[in-house]
Structures are given as structure tokens and as C-alpha cells.
């Protein structure tokens, strides 16, 4: 019965939760944004360095559950070196697989490792854990200075 839980907590999730990538403060970031999930108190601070539409570097700090930490970590890995438009497109795909809305047409291969978080769609209460980092990134790309909330 705990086998089913492995759909959500895959080894990649545990790995990124234990050793989050790009988990650091970024001096000289061009964008810095606070993300907050008021339901569970998860907070992240996301740092982005953008140069001419290209995401040169992205990092984060904060505390959250395994799902939100792994999602943030995976996100920083995948969007680094992408253009803003490519990141937006990834967010849209990611949102679709995690909420299960219009997810049939999504080719999971396009999402790479992010696909491991598709299991979250079976846990409506946890979807916001997975999308917190992405909502924060979207706000950072739009240069919204205020705190981002998942609510």
C-alpha cells in the first residue's frame, strides 16, 4: 500500500529534497522574489539572473516539504540557460501535468525530470507544494516585486 505513495515520492524527489540543487543566495541577482504557501507555511526565496531574455542563473533558499523543495530544485536545474519564453512554456506544461488539466497532450519527455512530479495530481492538497517555485519564477520573470502567494 505504501507502493502507491512511491508515485508521489519517487527517488528523484527524495534525492532533490535531501540535496537540493542551486540552494544558495545569489549576490547580484537581477530578480529576487519571496514565494509563500499560506496553507502550509512553505516559503521560498527565488533568485534569478536574467540577461537579454536569457535565464543565466537561478537559485533558491527556504523551507518546505519534500515536494516543494524537490520541485524548486528541479526547476532551477531545468530553466537555467533557457530563455524566458522557454521557461514560460515549461511552466505551462508543468502546470498541466500537476493539475491534470489538459495533460493528455503533454509529452512527458519534453519535461525531462520534471515528469516525476506528475504524481502530485492525485493529491489535490499537495499540488500547490509542487507549483510554488514555478509561480514564484513566473512572478520573477514578470518582475513583480511583491510576495507571491499560491492562494
Amino acid at each position: 500500500m505504501l507502493d502507491r505513495i512511491r508515485d508521489l515520492y519517487q527517488e528523484v524527489v527524495f534525492d532533490h529534497n535531501r540535496n537540493p540543487r542551486n540552494f544558495r543566495v545569489m549576490p547580484g541577482a537581477s530578480r529576487k522574489i519571496e514565494g509563500f504557501n499560506p496553507l502550509c507555511g512553505d516559503r521560498i526565496t527565488l533568485y534569478v539572473r536574467i540577461n537579454d531574455g536569457l535565464i543565466e542563473d537561478v537559485s533558491f533558499q527556504g523551507s518546505g516539504c519534500a515536494i516543494s523543495t524537490a520541485s524548486a530544485s528541479l526547476m532551477t536545474e531545468i530553466v537555467k540557460g533557457k530563455t524566458e519564453q522557454e521557461a514560460e512554456r515549461l511552466f505551462e506544461l508543468f502546470h498541466r501535468i500537476t493539475t491534470g488539466k489538459n495533460s493528455e497532450a503533454v509529452n512527458l519527455e519534453d519535461l525531462g525530470k520534471l515528469a516525476v512530479l506528475a504524481g502530485v495530481r492525485a493529491y489535490p492538497a499537495r499540488v500547490k507544494c509542487a507549483t510554488l517555485a514555478w509561480h514564484s519564477l513566473q512572478a520573477a520573470l514578470k518582475n513583480e516585486a511583491e510576495t507571491v502567494s499560491t492562494e
Binding site: I5, L8, S63, C65, A66, T69
Partner: peptide, 8 residues
């Protein structure tokens, strides 16, 4: 994290 405890 408590949320992970709760889900499991």
C-alpha cells in the same frame, strides 16, 4: 516536513 508526514 509535516506535510509529507500527513500525506504518508
Amino acid at each position: 516536513h509535516p506535510h509529507d508526514i500527513g500525506t504518508i
